[in-house]
Write a protein that binds this DNA or RNA. Structure first.
Length: 492
RNA sequence: GGCGCGGUACCCAAGUGGUAAGGGAGAGGUCUGCAAAACCUUUAUGCGCCGGUUCGAUCCCGGCCCGCGCCUCCA
């Protein structure tokens, strides 16, 4: 099975297969670590996670490189405001970023590449460009890429810049450039700013050069796939292509994937709109990490996702449905044998599921295949026609689902606990939802004890007491269900 | 202005030239001490509007309306 993925470069679905026949070599633009990640950032990283997990599901090994931009204008500005060296400043947010990825169950790429650790490679690349006549140095020591040196410029974003006159619609830069569209490769040192002494002068890298240098360092001059948010298509990726292909004379990435931005309540998320949320904001409101994950991956990556709290609640309930089904499978006692109807339905669900994902990562359709199976299986269980071997088949379906979606296995307690710890450390207790605090007040052991007491009360037909305990638990966010095979409970 | 995307039931959201997946929510029912869960029934003769092509269009073409994104180192 091969994944057919939309390729921005060709404008069509192309088969995504490793050029070397072994591992798929991919580069993903990572975060600029100057603040906590927001849900928009994570939608992109989650969709890339879906991609790599699906590749693994169909047996394609992946070598995935992600950069960390740990030096740029915003970082320099914010670190100065915080009175910290940029290394200390970025380390804090880089750590937070990885904690957040872990909470969202995003797999960590095989290779993490920090810009500040690859300065020599960037310098070499700039020197190469200079030798090719595509880079020039300005009076105060900055370096620019000469756009005129790359006639194919615009091929990714389908922009025709030939008609754009210098100076029109382009910010006035503090540095003099030959042409307004020429972009910075290297920025001359300014007093008080972090800089590196190098053969091309003292300064710091421009933004685009780090990705070219690091992608080539770990993946070679040509590689399979480059991904990022849609905003990066232009100018970032366009510039990467220009400088990389000019330097090597070879195609850079063969395949480009861009994840669309999400909207919040129908508008672009922004701090000034008041609809800006970090992952931590949501965890402190009491939403589970798994629900956030599901909400952010259920709409296919090429479609705008409108993020709402209602959607988050929907996702929470959808996960409950899957988890209840899973519990039902594992806890239930089934007779020996198998039911052909279940076996067939399971096979079909798995096929439909994989086909949907293979078709440009259609997560919505893939999800539907799984949920459709869940209902079929539940119906058969209700009729008492579900057998031991059917359980294996059903669990295999859920396993495939979780190999990519990863929301059924409940590992939500840890991210929530960490978020609460973080809130306490950073003085944000006021942001913690009261219901979340209440639900934290009962340990698993305390819940078990109360459930034991309730079971006893029920046996004595003391339903008043039993209901009282149930209400007490409900207040603390614990929901119980009396099933045939025992009491199930979960935290809301 | 240039480039691009989208408008499908109460909400979210797939999809196909042949008659509308899935999730959530609501209502009724089965089951249950009661709940919950699960299941069943139910909620678009209809897929923004108007034309056209076609035996037939939500899906193709044209126009219009509305929303959104990029064109500013914001994922």
């Amino acid at each position: 099975m091969t994944l057919r993925l939309f390729n921005t470069l060709t404008g069509q679905l192309d088969a995504l297969v490793p050029a070397d026949g072994k591992a798929l070599r991919m580069y993903a633009c990572g975060p600029t670590v100057y603040d906590y990640g927001h849900i928009g950032n994570f939608r992109t990283f989650l969709q890339i996670d879906i991609l790599r997990r699906f590749l693994h599901l169909i047996g394609t090994p992946v070598f995935h490189v992600m950069n960390i931009t740990d030096v740029d204008d915003k970082i320099i500005r914010n670190a100065a405001q915080a009175g910290l060296p940029i290394g200390e400043y970025t380390a804090r947010y880089e750590q937070a970023f990885f904690e957040d990825l872990k909470a969202l169950r995003v797999e960590i790429p095989e290779q993490i590449a920090r810009a500040t650790e690859h300065i020599p490679r960037m310098v070499e690349l700039i020197q190469k460009l200079e030798a090719a006549g595509a880079a020039y140095r300005t009076g105060e020591g900055s370096w620019y890429f000469r756009l005129a040196a790359f006639p194919e410029y615009g091929k990714l974003s389908k922009k025709d810049l030939s008609g754009i006159e210098d100076g029109a619609r382009v910010d006035v830069d503090e540095y003099e450039k030959d042409s307004a569209r020429d972009f910075a490769l290297w920025k001359a040192a300014k007093p008080g700013e972090t800089s590196w002494e190098t053969p091309i002068g003292r300064g710091r890298p421009g933004w685009h050069i780090e990705c070219s240098a690091m992608a080539m360092e770990y993946l070679g001059e040509s590689f399979d796939l480059h991904c990022g948010g849609e905003d990066l298509m232009f100018p970032h990726h366009e510039n990467e292509i220009a400088q990389s292909e000019t330097a090597t004379g070879k195609p850079f990435a063969r395949h480009w994937m861009h994840v669309r931005f999400l909207l919040v309540d129908g508008r672009k998320m922004s701090k000034s709109e008041g609809n800006f949320f970090t992952l931590r904001d949501l965890l402190l409101k009491g939403y589970k990490a798994s629900a956030i994950r599901l909400a952010l991956i259920s709409v296919p990556y090429r479609h705008q996702l409108n993020f709402t709290f209602e959607g988050l609640a929907d996702a929470t309930n959808a996960i409950d449905r899957l988890r209840t089904f899973h519990q039902r499978l594992t806890a239930g006692a089934f007779a020996m044998g198998s039911n052909q109807a279940v076996q067939d339905a399971a096979k079909k669900a798995q096929t439909d599921y994989r086909d949907a994902l293979a078709n440009d990562l259609n997560t919505a359709e893939a999800r539907a295949a799984i949920f459709g199976f869940v209902r079929e299986a539940n119906t058969i269980i209700d009729r008492g026609l579900f057998h031991i071997s059917d359980r294996d088949a059903a669990l295999a379906v859920l396993k495939d689902f979780d190999a990519v979606f990863d929301v059924i296995e409940d590992r939500d307690a840890e991210p929530t606990r960490r978020a609460l710890e973080w809130a306490a450390q950073s003085g944000r207790q006021a942001e913690v939802a009261p219901a979340l605090l209440a639900s934290q007040s009962l340990t698993d052991e305390a819940v078990a004890a109360l459930i034991g007491e309730r079971t006893l009360a029920k046996q004595q037909r003391n339903f008043a007491r039993a209901d009282q305990i149930r209400a007490e638990l409900a207040e603390k966010g614990v929901v119980i269900e009396d099933a045939k095979d025992g009491v199930r409970w979960k935290r809301k």
